[in-house]
Simulated scan of single mutants.
Amino acid sequence: LSSYQIEASPTIAPKIAVWTTFTPDHLSRHYTLENYYSIKAHLLNQAQYQVMNGDDPYLRQTVDRWQNAYWTSVAGKANLPGRGAYLENGWVVFQDEAIVPVSDLRMVGAHNQQNLLMAVLTARLADIDKAAIAEAVRTFPGVAHRLEHICTWNDIDFINDSKATNYDAAQVGLSSVEAPVILIAGGDAKTGDDTGWIETIHAKAAKVLLIGDAATRFTQRLQESGYVESEVVETMDRAVSRAAELGRAVNAKVVLLSPACASFDQYANFEQRGDHFRQLCQELVP
């Protein structure tokens, strides 16, 4: 549930509530980080069981507020703030029981390992059988618009991360794929700290292709940071076409749509934006 949905549904009391991460977002509506936190916390306070991401820096600072919660950590049992699930020797472990090997998960990135831990923990709290959990993980193909692999063309992977609508999510997406990367970014910019995102661009992006209203602003920010391999292409059609042209020249391993922006300047929502990207990428493949 989004913070908007939680506000509109104050009486919802789930059996299990999961808090995956907490970063500054929607502050134009909620004004302060504490207000935003309180809205999210309201839902968890009404749940019978709380599942928290112990690797999230902000949530980890709030351990004292969640004495009865279950926690997760990809860094192992020693890093757990309390009881919960963790990774050990390549396995997801809950209550000292190995449930499923991490290698069975098809999705890339440490954040998806965090998601795996929270999903397995939630399933066990719901009394779902261990074998059923393992089978579900093995056969799960991934989620649309969240580091979704679209196709491989000329040995370059085209990946749709349209759901990355802020700097933190886009940094995670970019960190999760193999470099060199041609990054497609831009759209309807949000308020936030872009420092980590820009540092990751320096480390992994051979080229940044900019679309939408944020293109000029992003160009300026990248130039201020000393990054000069950005190009304003304005639209998704031009971005995919240009990425295909540049791919071999920059030895790209991945073309990644991870916009760091909302979509409302050019699309109805992030799903429509990702669907358009998918369509254009699939047209590259004979």
Results as ranks from 00 to 15, higher is better:
residue 1 L to N: 10
residue 1 L to Y: 05
residue 6 I to F: 11
residue 7 E to K: 13
residue 8 A to N: 10
residue 11 T to F: 14
residue 14 P to C: 12
residue 14 P to L: 15
residue 16 I to F: 05
residue 16 I to T: 08
residue 20 T to C: 10
residue 20 T to F: 00
residue 22 F to Q: 04
residue 29 R to I: 07
residue 30 H to N: 03
residue 30 H to F: 14
residue 43 L to Q: 06
residue 44 L to R: 06
residue 45 N to Y: 15
residue 47 A to T: 06
residue 47 A to I: 11
residue 48 Q to V: 15
residue 50 Q to H: 01
residue 52 M to T: 03
residue 53 N to S: 02
residue 54 G to K: 00
residue 55 D to N: 12
residue 55 D to R: 02
residue 56 D to R: 03
residue 57 P to E: 00
residue 58 Y to V: 06
residue 58 Y to T: 03
residue 59 L to R: 00
residue 60 R to C: 01
residue 62 T to V: 01
residue 65 R to S: 09
residue 65 R to K: 14
residue 70 Y to K: 02
residue 71 W to N: 02
residue 73 S to Y: 13
residue 75 A to Q: 12
residue 77 K to M: 15
residue 80 L to G: 08
residue 85 A to H: 13
residue 88 E to L: 13
residue 88 E to G: 06
residue 89 N to S: 12
residue 94 F to G: 05
residue 96 D to P: 02
residue 101 P to V: 14
residue 101 P to E: 12
residue 101 P to L: 15
residue 103 S to M: 10
residue 108 V to Q: 12
residue 110 A to S: 08
residue 111 H to P: 00
residue 115 N to Y: 03
residue 117 L to E: 04
residue 119 A to I: 07
residue 124 R to Y: 09
residue 124 R to P: 00
residue 134 A to Y: 09
residue 136 A to I: 09
residue 138 R to H: 12
residue 139 T to G: 08
residue 139 T to M: 08
residue 143 V to A: 13
residue 143 V to I: 09
residue 145 H to G: 10
residue 146 R to I: 00
residue 153 W to I: 03
residue 154 N to E: 12
residue 159 I to D: 10
residue 168 D to P: 02
residue 171 Q to W: 14
residue 180 P to G: 05
residue 181 V to K: 12
residue 187 G to D: 01
residue 192 G to W: 01
residue 193 D to I: 14
residue 196 G to A: 13
residue 196 G to S: 11
residue 198 I to M: 13
residue 198 I to R: 11
residue 203 A to P: 09
residue 206 A to G: 12
residue 208 V to M: 06
residue 217 R to A: 15
residue 223 Q to C: 04
residue 224 E to Q: 09
residue 225 S to P: 01
residue 228 V to G: 06
residue 231 E to S: 14
residue 232 V to K: 09
residue 234 E to L: 11
residue 234 E to Q: 15
residue 237 D to S: 07
residue 239 A to H: 03
residue 241 S to Q: 13
residue 242 R to W: 02
residue 245 E to T: 04
residue 248 R to T: 05
residue 249 A to G: 04
residue 251 N to I: 04
residue 255 V to H: 03
residue 262 A to Y: 02
residue 264 F to G: 03
residue 267 Y to W: 12
residue 271 E to K: 11
residue 271 E to Y: 06
residue 275 D to C: 05
residue 279 Q to C: 04
